[in-house]
């Protein structure tokens, strides 16, 4: 086992100790190189809000923010995430449980039904609005087409994100 070091060859069956910064908290995990970031978050950090759907980068359920950008956590290995700022859905609500405006808006506008895709959509939406607070409707639709939802028909999700955009 190496000490929080990603130098040299990490053997396939050896676990490396990594420090991950998740929602502002440092967490130490011990993972094989093949451990995806999504699995490290879920199984090693116990943060099961990040969902895994397709596991090949298509559905977007596992979207997290890496240094503020939306990223498929199933397409990144944990060993690649040792020195970045990771944000997951668990970091969205306030510590006292008050929901983030996007979470509120998804509830109000039927932006979810079963909820499986919701964490990914929330983080994607947060990144999109942070980068482009005045994003127009067409570009918002294009951005939200990054992720898949099988319940809502998408219109509720679009309405929810648009409401937060327009409230700013």
């Amino acid at each position: 086992m190496t000490e929080s070091s990603i130098t040299g060859l990490l053997e396939s069956d050896c676990k490396t100790r990594l420090r991950l910064s998740v929602n502002g908290t440092e967490r130490t995990v011990e993972v094989e190189p093949r451990r995806t970031l999504a699995d490290a978050l879920r199984d090693d950090c116990g943060l099961t809000g990040t969902h895994l759907g397709c596991e090949h980068g298509v559905c977007g359920a596992c979207t997290v923010l890496i240094d503020g950008n939306p990223v498929r956590s199933c397409l990144m290995f944990a060993v690649q995430a040792a020195d970045v700022d990771i944000r997951t859905v668990e970091g969205m609500a306030s510590p006292d449980g008050t929901l983030n405006p996007l979470q509120e808006s998804f509830m109000r506008h039927h932006g979810l039904q079963c909820g499986f895709c919701t964490p990914g959509f929330l983080l994607l939406s947060e990144a999109v609005l942070a980068a482009r607070p005045d994003i127009d409707d067409a570009e918002l639709r294009e951005a939200l087409s990054s992720n898949l939802c099988r319940c809502t028909g998408y219109q509720g999700i679009i309405d929810a994100v648009r409401a937060v955009r327009d409230a700013v």
Partner: peptide, 13 residues
């Protein structure tokens, strides 16, 4: 699905 095992190296140069 998960990837098969691999060794990993992240060089600096």
């Amino acid at each position: 699905m998960k990837p098969a095992q691999f060794s990993y190296i992240a060089p600096e140069t």
